[in-house]
Design a protein around this nucleic acid. Structure first.
Lengths: 261, 261
DNA sequence: ATAAATCGGTTCATTATTATAACCGATGGT
DNA sequence: ACCATCGGTTATAATAATGAACCGATTTAT
């Protein structure tokens, strides 16, 4: 069913940063013929997956995606299960907790919980995070199949955010092996300065990671003791969320948490 | 692109009331061959639109639908635009306001706002409403193409909820003509007793209805004066929401609201 | 305990669908 | 006045989808 997959891949071209596009644009980016793309878009539109502005003729994601999300979230409430776990995490650790899910080539923040104290790390909803420069991204990559890793960090030059950002894909790949064995990821000042991140992946039925749960600590108070406490809590949350969805976390996470308590 | 459309129609088989199903089940309901269905499900699964439980082998909607909904709702916040309109509506009218969107063969409540008073109509989120027995359903049907109406209320025997429910599709169709000319719909005790509903459709770019905004009044206080006030407010909200989304409401709504103020 | 039905999934010859390039008229920038 | 690009259409060539029969494993009925 290659046709179906090609058609669905067109939907991947719509992102938070580029929510609408014209026909030629889409055809070009999808690497498909214009006529083919148009027929696919028409089919997608007939089923409500995309809709077209009557004047600008641009396409965007349609209302059907909202409908299906509603159905899935009503019967399998992932997001509503993640939020309470984050709230607990923020309270336990006294730092900002957040969850991010992989969205094609982006890692998007879908849940945030802040501690009740004056100083804390601030995060934005729906903000795309870089895979190679955040603890969440590393935790996700470490437990993803290597083809996916190649696609996401490839050998392109990686964006540099601070002087501590690792820009070499090979360096990152080395870290990933370590993270995979250890069960959790950490990053310090690699995306935002003065922030230490600690993250663990969450898994679905198929056993592959699809997101991460993380805590962002203000570097000023990131003592080894606090980091250890946070790591244990993050692992616990990731394991709980994964299990709540009927999946089983990678053994490395279980082992890591046991050794920390 | 018939293949694409057939594949997407498979997704329609997943509903709030039946969120997962097996291969043979899906093939039978879709009217497709088992082999074909399997191939389509595999394609859908590869793109994350469905996922399969490793043990029961059942399929359900996948995480991709959440991702796309997130992208669409981030860049084009329909639901977040509807909610404030409902809040205003509930305050203005002193009754329960709600919005429902069409989801295939169901009309699903996606937003609720309750007034600040002791007695009020109670509604549930995600509850599927019958098209023929609620003001919201009638408002939606009245502004939908007749083929869709046939599909939704056909000539099947319609479910009866109270002694005031109209069970004949032809009776309903007559009401629809009236509603279309008038611009808004009302129902009294036809779904829940002691409840009067007043609803107006909301439209999208294509000019067809895709949902409704309604107020549910306690029958005990549904005086003609209140009903008139509510009708004007509901029309106003429906017009505002439609315009806020860049679409234009049916002229009947505009005319009706003008004649009420 | 046994048999029949049904499950998810596979195979391969037949068939119908889809891809492609060239071409429209309309629009917009230089 | 031009050229490039837009969204969209069409005919022909090429590719992809279809579906009946079949498989082994469970589940259900007898």
């Amino acid at each position: 069913m290659r046709t179906v997959e090609k058609a669905l891949k067109i939907l991947d071209l719509f992102t938070v940063g580029r929510p609408e596009a014209g026909l030629s644009d889409l055809a070009r980016q999808a690497g498909l013929d214009k006529a083919t793309t148009l027929r696919m878009l028409s089919s997608l539109a007939r089923q409500g997956f995309v809709e077209q502005h009557p004047e600008t003729k641009k396409y965007r994601l349609g209302k059907a995606v909202l409908r299906f999300a509603r159905i899935r979230e009503t019967s399998f409430p992932v997001l509503s299960m993640i939020q309470p776990a984050l709230d607990r995490l923020a309270e336990e650790t006294g730092e900002t907790a957040h969850a991010s899910l992989a969205s094609g080539a982006e890692l998007i923040t879908v849940g945030i919980a802040v501690p009740q104290r004056a100083t804390r790390v601030h995060l934005e909803f729906s903000e795309p995070l870089p895979f190679h420069a955040t603890a969440s991204g590393l935790a996700y990559l470490a437990f993803s199949p290597s083809e996916l890793v190649d696609e996401l960090i490839g050998n392109r030059p990686l964006s540099v955010y601070t002087e501590h950002t690792k820009a070499s894909a090979d360096d990152v790949r080395q870290d990933l092996a370590e993270i995979r064995a250890r069960g959790w990821a950490a990053s310090a000042n690699s995306y935002e300065i003065d922030v230490v991140g600690i993250a663990a992946p969450i898994f679905d039925w198929s056993g592959s990671a699809y997101g991460a749960i993380a805590v962002a600590i203000l570097a000023a108070r990131a003592t080894p003791e606090l980091q250890e406490k946070v790591t244990a809590a993050v692992l616990g949350a990731a394991i709980d969320v994964t299990r709540a969805m009927g999946a089983e976390p990678d053994p490395a996470l279980i082992k890591a948490r046991r050794s920390l308590t």
